[in-house]
Computed example of a mutant assay.
Amino acid sequence: MSTRLVVLLSGRGTNFSALQQAILDGWLSARIVAVVADRPAAGLALAAEHGIDRVLIDRRRHADRNSFEESLACALASYRPDWIVLAGFMRVLSAELVRRFAGRMVNIHPSLLPLYRGLDTHARALAAGDREHGASVHFVTPELDSGPVISQVRTPILAGDDADSLADRLLALEHRLLPATMALLSACPVELRHESIVIDHQPLDRPLELGRDLDERGRRTR
């Protein structure tokens, strides 16, 4: 039985599209059973094109955060997901909701965590004079962008880069990182144990890197 994924998004849905393409290409053994958005996002239209259930839980139509998150939690639970993937979901979730789905919720974040949690990561990397930038897939925990990191991808910062050019180059790498990571998580037993990751019964002592050990593990499990 293929792994059941629910994708949360707030925008264009390009990382969702990358996941769906990997499924269609046959190397991600999973099924996206629903796409959930917190606003009328373009990603919902992409889901419709693939015949995937769409759920709009508009924060503006809820009286407060608690009622919004209760609707969100009920929707997520109804699809019985193996993994919940935050792919450009621009809302901070409460500790209560995160704990409800602990160990099953991952996020892709545009920085080499633990660097640059939160927003404006590309501009912050440039302002710091960093030589490289990247993206991370990590478990979602109650503290923002602080969960254990599963995988990363790196890209050099080039002379003449601005925040937009760096973001565009990194996004193309995110479209490879997220499907490769989900292929691994769909193929191997994975546990989150007290802020540590165990994959295929082996503790993960550092993030897997796309193009190196992440690809190797993916090949062994396919």
Rank of each mutant, 00 (worst) to 15 (best):
M90K: 03
L171N: 06
I84K: 00
I57S: 04
L158Q: 15
H109M: 09
A125F: 04
D53K: 08
V98F: 01
R60C: 10
A87L: 11
G26N: 05
G13P: 07
S136T: 11
D161R: 04
L166G: 05
I52A: 04
I32P: 02
P207F: 07
R31Y: 05
T3D: 02
L119F: 13
A41R: 00
L166W: 01
R220Y: 03
L9K: 04
S136I: 09
A125S: 08
S10P: 15
P207C: 10
R219K: 08
L192A: 11
D145V: 11
V85E: 04
A42Y: 04
D205Q: 14
E174S: 06
Y116M: 07
D162Q: 06
W83F: 14
T121M: 02
L9A: 06
F101T: 05
V92C: 03
D58T: 09
R220A: 14
L166M: 08
I32V: 15
G26S: 09
R104A: 11
P207W: 02
S10R: 00
A127N: 04
R99A: 05
R39C: 07
S10L: 12
L5A: 10
L208Y: 13
G103S: 07
H109A: 09
R222P: 05
V35L: 12
N66A: 13
L115H: 12
P203S: 07
D64K: 00
S17V: 08
Y116P: 04
R176Y: 02
L119I: 13
S29C: 12
T221V: 15
L113R: 02
F139P: 10
A163R: 06
P156E: 01
A95W: 02
R131Y: 01
H122E: 07
D58I: 09
A187G: 15
H122P: 04
L171F: 15
A34G: 06
I199P: 01
G103L: 04
G147P: 11
S165C: 08
P81G: 11
R217H: 05
V33A: 14
L214I: 13
L19P: 10
E70Y: 00
G11C: 12
L76F: 14
A180Q: 14
Q202P: 06
T221A: 13
H122C: 03
A47E: 01
V153Y: 00
G218R: 14
R124L: 15
A75N: 03
T141M: 03
V198C: 10
D168R: 13
H194G: 12
D200S: 15
A18Q: 05
D58K: 01
H175M: 08
A75C: 13
S196N: 14
E132K: 00
G218D: 01
F68V: 06
R54S: 10
V106E: 01
V190A: 15
A167V: 10
Y116I: 08
T3P: 09
G129E: 06
L8V: 08
D205Y: 08
S67G: 03
L44N: 05
A18Y: 02
I57Y: 00
V7G: 01
A183S: 15
H122G: 02
C74S: 14
R220F: 07
L9T: 07
V153S: 00
I150Q: 01
N15D: 12
T14I: 10
L170C: 11
H175K: 13
M1H: 12
L185N: 05
L72G: 13
R222D: 04
L178V: 12
F68E: 09
E69M: 02
S146Q: 14
Q152W: 03
